[in-house]
Amino acid sequence: MSEAAHHEALIDALGAELTPVRRLPPPWRRALGWLLVVVVTAAVLLVRHGATTMMHRWEVAPDLGVAAAGAVITAITAALTSFVLAVPGRTLKWAWLPVPSALVWIAASGMGCLRAHIPGMPVMNIHGADDCLIFIISFSVPLSALMIWLLRRACPLHPALTAIMVGLASAAASASLLEIFHNFDASASDLLMHLLAIAIVIGANSLMGGRLLSRAFVSAPRRG
């Protein structure tokens, strides 16, 4: 153990200042906490707007229902992946978990554009699509901020990848919430705006969130 002898002084110093720490709860429990906030928001929106419009769209155009389910599953899996990747020693293969549902979400939304127009639903114009963009981004910002705050005690060894997952989870959750009072038929401009919003949210997260998360790794709080 002569190699360890070089580091005896450091080991002694670290041992001397050892204090008991509060263990990080398992990733699934922390993901559940974040999803709970999303569910409460969804409940508030449902109470205010009712479910009739949403149900009408899904009945007439089941592909929109599939897209919504894809978004919900993506939000759940990406949230779980964010918390898992923020713990050292977990395999990076976790990053693939939200990919299938994200593909279903995007593909089903794209299919919506090819389908015949839903009777009784206004077709999206650019102005309406702007609202979607603003909604997704304005909901994603607090959701991303909340998750980055929840990750403050974690140790993401791959901050950029973790931040991308945070962005995907937030964007998917916002798109799911938007579904509740989305009074438009799916159109190309709608899909484009959704994709743009998701890209902006993920891009901003990987830039800013990655930096925030890597700072957390460099100087993670000592207190438990």
């Binding site: 080991i11 990080l24 060894l157 438990g224």
Partner: peptide, 27 residues
Amino acid sequence: VQETLLTVHRVRHTFDPTRSYDAWLSA
């Protein structure tokens, strides 16, 4: 070694005793 020991000390609360210590340390 020094940098890793310091990091281990800082993030020791992220270790889950139900999982492998070696995998955690190696990462």
